[in-house]
């Protein structure tokens, strides 16, 4: 079974995965969506870390350490960041972190990732502005975005058909650039939320 869901909080994500296991759906993979296998309901213990690795060797070493300490690596790649672990047996520690600082540090790492992603789009946005590629008049005179000859002289059904047909194209023409500031904003918001969670976890609240 596949499920789409988005989390900005690792603790909530872990709780959700454990809850899914209690209902008989155990995580088997994660790409864009979560992949679950149907099993006997179980009290699983899923834990998450956030790390990317410079080399394949580093990644192997990391996974080996967790396997040695009783955690099965379920999902995550060298560059995916999110790493999903499931406690193998009953022995060993309950968590993959034994102090507050390291438990909080994963939020710092994901916050930095969101922030650098947001920053990537800033120069692109600056270029679009400085080359006048962004036409702000489209806000004031959206009719200029319609290219159908004689559109505004048509009437009745003919007008509406032509108008509605072209509207998606006109929208695309005029407002695609807005994706960039929106993305900068959304990524910055994720970075901010992760940073807040980092501080909160560090204070042990």
């Amino acid at each position: 079974m596949k499920k789409f869901k988005f989390f900005t909080n690792f603790d909530h994500e872990e709780q959700w995965l454990n809850e899914m296991a209690r209902q008989g759906y155990v995580l088997t993979g994660k790409s864009l969506s979560y992949e679950f296998a149907q099993v006997q309901p179980e009290n699983a213990n899923f834990r998450m870390d956030y790390r990317t690795f410079k080399s394949r060797q580093d990644f192997e070493d990391y996974k080996a350490l967790f396997e040695d300490s009783g955690w099965t690596h379920i999902a995550g790649t060298r560059s995916s960041g999110s790493q999903y672990f499931k406690q193998t047996g009953a022995e060993g520690s309950e968590d993959i972190f034994s102090d507050v600082d390291s438990k909080a540090a994963r939020y710092k790492r994901i916050s930095d990732m969101w922030l650098s992603l947001a920053c990537c789009f800033i120069p692109l946005f600056a270029v679009l502005i400085s080359t006048d590629a962004i036409d702000v008049t489209a806000f004031l005179k959206p009719q200029l975005l319609y290219y159908t000859p004689g559109l505004w002289d048509m009437s009745g059904g003919q007008f509406w058909r032509a108008f509605l047909f072209e509207t998606p194209f006109a929208f695309f023409r005029g407002f695609t650039w807005m994706m960039i500031p929106v993305m900068i904003l959304v990524y910055s918001l994720f970075a901010y939320k992760a940073k807040k969670q980092y501080e909160k976890t560090q204070q042990g609240r």
Binding site: A64, L65, S69, S98, K103
Partner: peptide
């Protein structure tokens, strides 16, 4: 290696310091 460090730390500290994988 990593896991051996975890075990040694636990042993050296007479079981007082237990480190989990992510922390180590």
């Amino acid at each position: 290696h990593g896991y051996l460090i975890m075990q040694k730390v636990e042993e050296l500290s007479s079981g007082q310091v237990h480190m989990a994988a992510g922390t180590l």
